[in-house]
Simulated assay, not measured.
Amino acid sequence: MFTVSESEAETIRRAFHDRGEWSAVVELRRLFPVFANNPEALRCVRAIAGWQPLPAPAAAPPKVTQLRRRKPAEPQP
């Protein structure tokens, strides 16, 4: 298991889309020398290349104000 920062993932995705998956494997192995074999690195590259950015957080819900009862009308003389 390893952790990939957003900048590392972007570097791998850019290599994948610009130069192909084997170039992305080279980038992954450069960033993470722990990978000893190419098939495992290729599997990770394909997973990283398929990542989608997280959606932006939803806007805060509108503030709800409690309704107040009307004052009863005063009788007219």
Rank of each mutant, 00 (worst) to 15 (best):
A59V: 10
E40M: 09
Q52F: 02
A15Y: 01
P72N: 02
C44V: 13
K71R: 09
A56Q: 07
D18A: 15
V64G: 00
P55F: 01
G20S: 02
N37P: 00
N38P: 00
E27N: 06
R14P: 00
D18K: 13
F35Y: 11
W22L: 15
V26S: 09
P62I: 08
S23R: 08
F32K: 15
V64K: 08
A58T: 02
P33E: 05
P39G: 03
H17V: 12
A47C: 03
P39L: 07
A9D: 05
V64F: 00
G20Y: 00
R14I: 11
P77W: 01
T11E: 12
A60I: 07
A60K: 09
A9L: 14
R68C: 07
E6Y: 00
A56L: 15
S5E: 07
E8K: 06
P57C: 05
L42E: 08
V4H: 04
V45A: 06
A49E: 14
Q76K: 11
P62A: 13
L67F: 03
H17N: 12
S5L: 14
R46Y: 00
L54T: 07
E74N: 07
V34M: 11
A49I: 10
Q66N: 04
R43W: 01
F2D: 14
E10L: 12
R70T: 06
R43G: 03
S7Y: 01
D18V: 13
T65Q: 05
G20K: 02
P39I: 02
A47R: 08
R69W: 05
A49N: 14
E8A: 14
H17S: 13
R29W: 00
